[in-house]
Write a protein that binds this DNA or RNA. Structure first.
Lengths: 153, 153
DNA sequence: TCAGTTTCTTGAATCATTCCAGTTTGTGGC
DNA sequence: GCCACAAACTGGAATGATTCAAGAAACTGA
């Protein structure tokens, strides 16, 4: 528990109950959105304002202790695995997010063929699919309705 | 111009002035957001409700005539290049989006190392950087403030 | 032209997130 | 342990993108 406080300190951030709880919460249950984090933190601290949660999340993200990911069509999520440029697997049905290690080592991902003059500093890869649970549910309900299946491309 | 109407028809959509104008507009100026599209369409048709624009964009996207992209932190954008699974280059400073052909052919992009049981059907790659214009501006203003530089990973 | 269905209009609502002003709390020095 | 300062938190309102709802208008095929 205390290493959380330590991490905050070494990142140059003040150690407050809210921040400790938030960081701890994100570390124990990864890829949570702001609301879920707020709820969890309130469960342990009693009361924390929404604003405090957003503020802390921004501070932690800026300090490099959290990483913010934002899959299309769902609110921002936060994860504690920072530093390695891993990628994500998002379920179209339930929105669940899973981590994936860099696809082919690392170089190919960050080396676009034409940069159009852009100064590229990061490559973000998101795989879209259906998670095992939703697959099972869809199969179990006789091929029901797996939320949205836009079949984009 | 009429091939737009044709495309609508062959996609099973009714041909209305709003839809023709919207599809035409997106094709001429790519990667536009809903508001910009609405403004442009109003410029040619006089008046179109915001709702009609969103509705048409959804219909066109669902029909496969448009593709919706949603870079983190900016409103949804629409592009007319569908079918090929190309990727995108997004400017951190101004939000501008550019197309990039698939990085390494196509296979590596859609083949994550571990799928965690997910049924993966699409890989989305977004390169983050700074566009030439914003680079020039930043250099011109003596290294000013290029919006946000979160230095994520 | 008629009927039926789809699409558009207007207005309000929703959701995630941010802004503001004032109070509280953590931190370092004494 | 106490003080002062800056950072963090509270409560409330606001913003921006998008969606919902109900009724009017337009498109399509007969």
């Amino acid at each position: 528990m205390d290493n959380v406080a330590d991490d905050l300190r070494s990142a140059g951030l003040r150690v407050t109950a809210a921040r400790v709880a938030i960081l701890d919460h994100v570390r124990s249950g990864n890829h949570l959105d702001a609301e879920r984090i707020a709820r969890g933190v309130r469960g342990s601290l009693g009361h924390v304002s929404t604003q405090a949660v957003y503020d802390a999340l921004h501070a932690l993200t800026k300090a490099g202790l959290l990483r913010r990911i934002e899959p299309a069509g769902s609110p921002a999520r936060f994860e504690s695995r920072v530093g390695d440029n891993h990628h994500h697997l998002v379920c179209r049905s339930c929105g669940e997010v899973a981590d994936i290690d860099c696809v082919v080592g690392e170089a190919p991902c960050v080396e676009p063929s034409e940069t159009h003059g852009y100064a590229v500093d990061e490559a973000e890869v998101v795989f879209w699919g259906v998670c095992p649970q939703c697959q099972a549910q869809a199969a179990g309900s006789g091929g029901g309705e797996p939320a949205q299946t836009e079949s984009g491309g």
